[in-house]
């Protein structure tokens, strides 16, 4: 218990270092350029303090509880002796890795739901759209995108196909979807790609990628271990655009049907 307390203090101090440049930029511009008093300064400073403590607790909690187990799990699941079931010398096929795909999907989905920056964007989108975009609807759409993206990214590492094929195909897909998607959602959908992967997702997903690239024959962990984050930032754009498209179609069909 003592070391958790010790690490907690350390986590809060390192969060101060993250927050410091941001606070300097904000207060510097406020003092020297805008030269206006900040409205509700006390409340805003209290808010910064809460963010600081909150992130410190959050990171230390993840570090103490979920990351060690999740990372160990990623390495155990990608271990060839686990995947083969028994110690045999047969060559593993891509389809032998079904637990890894399922884990990739599940961990992608669940870490995204807990991602604080996505929660922040969802709260803002809900406020700005006056409730039209539900915080849960957006977060689940994004989480499904991340889940599919990471599962596909894992398949890419196992099959050894080049990363850029997937990413460029994804780009073409996004551009086609943009032509048909409701205008309101486009900027938010593009944003949702960047916010999905931060504090919670990156460490676990990186462990999965490095574990796989280290055990699949013929893969180099330094070269093939990367790329999962790229999948996790591309596929939410597709899923959010798709979700908006579906709800637009649904509401149009509802209006056009004679029973309404």
């Amino acid at each position: 218990m003592m070391h958790i307390l010790h690490d907690l203090v350390y986590a809060i101090i390192s969060t101060i270092w993250d927050l410091l440049p941001i606070a300097m930029v904000i207060f510097g511009f406020q003092l020297f350029i805008l030269r206006k008093p900040i409205p509700n300064l006390k409340r805003i400073l209290a808010g910064f303090l809460l963010v600081l403590l909150g992130l410190g607790f959050f990171l230390e909690g993840l570090q103490a509880a979920l990351f060690p187990l999740g990372k160990l799990m990623a390495y155990q699941l990608t271990d060839p002796s686990f995947i083969a079931g028994e110690p045999t010398a047969r060559v593993l096929q891509w389809s032998d890795y079904y637990w890894v795909y399922l884990f990739a999907f599940a961990i992608g989905f669940s870490t995204t739901i807990a991602e604080p920056s996505l929660l922040a964007v969802a709260i803002k989108a809900n406020q700005v759209s006056a409730g039209a975009i539900g915080t849960w609807g957006l977060r689940i759409a994004v989480a499904i995108g991340v889940a599919v993206g990471i599962a596909l990214g894992v398949y890419r590492i196992i099959s050894g196909t080049p990363l850029y094929w997937y990413i460029i195909t994804g780009y073409v897909f996004v551009l086609v979807q943009t032509l048909f998607a409701p205008r309101m959602i486009i900027a938010l959908a593009y944003d949702s790609g960047g916010v999905t992967t931060s504090t919670v997702t990156v460490p676990l997903v990186a462990a999965l990628g490095l574990g796989l690239a280290g055990t699949v024959p013929g893969r180099n962990p330094l070269l093939d271990g990367f790329g999962l984050i790229a999948f996790a930032s591309l596929f939410p754009i597709i899923s959010v655009l798709g979700y908006a498209q579906l709800s637009a179609w649904n509401s149009r069909r509802g209006r056009n049907s004679p029973n309404q």
Partner: peptide, 12 residues
């Protein structure tokens, strides 16, 4: 931590 963070978002 997550609770404090969300509170701090809206305040700060």
């Amino acid at each position: 931590g997550l609770t404090l963070f969300v509170q701090g978002l809206n305040m700060g």
